[in-house]
Each structure stands twice: as C-alpha cells, then as structure tokens.
C-alpha cells in the first residue's frame, strides 16, 4: 500500500525543535540533508521507495478563466496557510510500517543537531479496486 509523506513549510502543527533553517549552522544544514538522503537510500534498499521531491517555496495559483481566455494566475500569497515543502511516496506492507517510517523521517536533525520532531502529513493513496469486494 502506498502512502504520501508530506513535509510542510507552513501549515503543520508546530515542531518540537522549531527554528527557521537560516538560523541553523552550515554543518547542521549539511547534516539534515545527509539524513534525508540516507533515509531515501535505505528505502531504496528495502524496496519501499517510490519517489520524492522537494518543492520551491514560492509558486502561484492558476485557474481556468473561460473559453478562449488564457488561464488566470494569482499569487504567490504570503498568507497561504498550507505550504508544502516536499513529498515522498513509499510502498509498504502496513500502516504501522508507514507510521514507523514517517517517525524516522521526522527525527531528521535540525537546529543544534537535535531532531526536529516535525509533524509530517501521512496520506494513504487510493488502492485499485480489488478483485473480490462483495461476496
């Protein structure tokens, strides 16, 4: 079963070790990135990794604006409450395993080299319709 792990710039409940990244030392930033890379490598090795990317903080809103007109764009808005920083998709055998992995990712070191304890959003994917659902 597949899960999406979402990391937020904004919008998640406050982390335990909550400091903006520009306050971290360069070594702490390196250590953080290394932790994330090694985490992904471990998942590749265990055969549970599907994909992941980090996202730029600034984007825009886009919507259809009617026949024959170009799409309407707006933003970015500084006040957007929910801002996603990155995502990782995992394919695991159970919800317990997904929670375990999200917990590990949330332990990534941050300010002072201590775990960030950041809240990650864990969302299951829709599955395929199974061959047997009603009997």
């Amino acid at each position: 079963m597949k899960y999406l792990m979402l990391k937020h710039y904004r919008g998640a409940p406050e982390a335990v070790n909550d400091h903006p990244m520009h306050e971290w030392s360069p070594d702490e930033i390196d250590a953080h990135i290394r932790y994330m890379d090694e985490f992904a490598d471990r998942l590749r090795e265990s055969g549970e990794y599907v994909g992941g990317e980090a996202l730029a903080p600034e984007g825009m809103w886009v919507r259809y604006d009617g026949e024959g007109r170009p799409p309407k764009t707006d933003g970015p808005f500084a006040e957007t409450k929910d801002l996603i920083a990155g995502w990782m998709i995992i394919d695991v055998d159970s919800e317990e395993r997904a929670i375990e992995l999200a917990g590990e990712l949330s332990a990534a070191p941050g300010f002072g080299g201590r775990p960030i304890h950041e809240w990650l959003e864990l969302r299951p994917f829709f599955t395929r319709l199974e061959s047997v659902t009603e009997a």
Partner: peptide, 15 residues
C-alpha cells in the same frame, strides 16, 4: 503492475 520504480522492485526481490 505495482506502480513502483523498477529499481525498487529489483531491491525488493533481492532482499
């Protein structure tokens, strides 16, 4: 069939 990268499936089998 399981919508995962080939390298992931190869690892799963090797493991």
């Amino acid at each position: 069939a399981y919508l995962v990268p080939e390298s992931t499936m190869a690892q799963r089998i090797a493991r």
